[in-house]
């Protein structure tokens, strides 16, 4: 199972299919599937970002939906002011500003919360990342100017020279290219000296400390990078749905991201993409049967955790430790 889900020809084939199949659907009149694929690719980017800390760093963050939400609001709030006035200095209608802001906000939030939560380990870390994500959820909900819990419609997508995010094909291609680029970057980082230290601290932290590595700082940098990736994915998501609401940061969304990373194959480059595909396909099929699709989905999750051999943790160790 791990070989199939890990890497090799099948994963490259999967990427090619992921690029081509939605386009075929679009040109044969099934535009819906292109939208579905775009959402899939965006979620895959976020899952890759989460996998960077969860898989390679061993940091179980249950709050990554907050980064997605922050990225989406980094698009939505400037767009709101550009149309309805208020911040004339920001009214540049420039996508580079939106996306830059999303990445910056994601990284900054990761820096501040990571600096505190990385002081603790294990179950503390899980709960604290959850709590910080919930803090942003309630913060956004309490700001009535931006819709509170009703959310905010983005009337105008980010604008870039030469490309238009209003065109579904271009949007999909941009998202796909971003995914490929980010996967390549993660691959490079994981196999760099920095990535070695990060993986080493997951495997045996005291050994890394005793040979002189400040593991806390390495983890913090990794956490910031992960936050930036998810902020970027959030900016794409905000542009894609053209509607943002606190519900994007609900902690069940963080759970879904974890689901993608873990069932897809932790600490692999392609795993999160497989996971995102599995999640979208499951969601699509199950919600086609019943509005109560969370019931079979949850049952499946419980059963997989209970009966997978050695638990999910055997998957967590990843292939490089084998």
């Amino acid at each position: 199972m791990r070989n199939i889900l890990g890497k090799g020809l099948s994963s490259w084939g999967m990427m090619v299919l992921l690029l081509i199949v939605p386009l075929i659907f679009y040109y044969t009149g099934n535009a819906f599937y292109l939208d579905l694929a775009t959402r899939l690719v965006i979620l895959a980017i976020a899952a890759v970002g989460l996998n960077f800390v969860l898989g390679f760093g061993g940091l179980i963050s249950f709050g990554h939906a907050a980064f997605l939400g922050l990225g989406a609001y980094a698009v939505g709030i400037p767009a709101y002011h550009e149309i309805y006035g208020g911040w004339d200095a920001l009214a540049s209608t420039n996508g580079f500003f939106h996306f830059g802001l999303a990445i910056g906000v994601g990284a900054l939030f990761a820096l501040v919360t990571g600096a505190i939560s990385l002081k603790v380990k294990g179950v503390h870390f899980i709960m604290i990342t959850m709590a910080f994500a919930q803090m942003i959820y309630y913060l956004v909900m309490s700001i009535e100017e931006y819709g509170g819990d009703d959310g905010l419609v983005i009337d105008m997508r980010s604008e870039f020279p030469l490309i238009s995010l209003d065109d579904p094909i271009q949007f999909f291609l941009i998202a796909f290219a971003s995914l490929a680029l980010i996967m390549w970057l993660v691959h490079r980082m994981v196999n760099s000296r920095f990535g070695m230290v990060l993986r080493g601290s997951k495997g045996n932290e005291s050994r890394m400390i005793s040979i002189g590595y400040p593991t806390y700082r390495y983890r913090l940098v990794a956490y910031v990078i992960s936050g930036a990736i998810c902020g970027y994915a959030g900016a794409l998501l905000g542009n894609f749905t053209a509607f943002i609401s606190p519900e994007m940061m609900d902690w069940s969304r963080s759970g879904n991201l974890m689901f993608m990373v873990i069932l897809g194959g932790v600490a692999t480059i392609f795993g999160p993409v497989w996971g995102a595909i599995a999640f979208i396909v499951l969601e699509e099929i199950l919600s086609g049967f019943t509005v109560y699709w969370h019931l079979p989905f949850g049952l499946m999750l419980v059963l997989v955790v209970m009966f997978s051999r050695g638990g999910i943790s055997s998957l967590l160790r990843g292939k490089e430790d084998k």
């Binding site: 179980i60 249950f62 294990g122 179950v123 899980i126 069940s252 759970g255 974890m258 689901f259 873990i262 109560y292 969370h294 019931l295 989905f297 949850g298 049952l299 499946m300 999750l301 419980v302 997989v304 955790v305 209970m306 638990g311 999910i312 943790s313 967590l316």
Partner: peptide, 19 residues
């Protein structure tokens, strides 16, 4: 199991109970 399994398993249980 380790805490990750607890979190995922009980997360699934929440979805089931809530639904």
């Amino acid at each position: 199991r380790d805490h990750l399994d607890h979190v995922l398993g009980t997360f699934g249980a929440i979805l089931v109970i809530d639904t």
